[in-house]
Design a protein around this nucleic acid. Sequence first.
DNA 1: TCATTAAAGTTAT
DNA 2: ATAACTTTAATGA
Length: 198
Amino acid sequence: MSITEKLLRTVESTEEHYNTGDYIFRENTMPQFYYQIVTGEVKLNSYSEDGREFIQNILSDGACMGESMLILSKPYPVNAIALTSCVIVKVGRDHFFQLLQLHPHLFNDIYTALADNTFEKLSLMRTITANNAEERLIEIMDLMKEFHDDKQKFSFEIPHTRQQLASLTGLSVETAIRAIKRLEKNNIVMIKDRKIYY
DNA sequence: TCATTAAAGTTAT
DNA sequence: ATAACTTTAATGA
């Protein structure tokens, strides 16, 4: 999934602190660092012409971000913005590759992270092109539940706001809210204190 | 079916 | 207090 902190510290690295709303990196800039979240949540997003936000992904503890662009030396296609205050370990590009050479087993971890990303991306694609709102929401909830793997009917508390769910699925908030209510009526989701359980 | 607009209530900072 | 989020309703593509 990601590189153990211990190993990250063996190479020149810095621990950065970000506040809610801070940019970790911006769209169209060149990657310079490998970033890994120690604690906190980060969203990867972009905005359409009319200013509508689309969230590509929401990442939390232990996740790394932007690896593929770092490896490819291509500008970021998304922004990375802190959703909470975050502690993030930063490793310079050269040191990152040194670390990989030094510990070849890390290729496995990166490889897995990339594969995971691809899977999420493809699933997200399917989600977004799925016709109706309810299917899109079920799809994204399935993905999230898979990551935080605790199986059981209503055992998983969706860790995002309705607004975020809407931005993740390309729906308007209002549509997302109505669809969620329909899901509740159909016993697919349970709502308690405005929290969504799936 | 879904987006948009508007308006009002609720929660978080 | 102020901003961010949630909800409902009317209207229109």
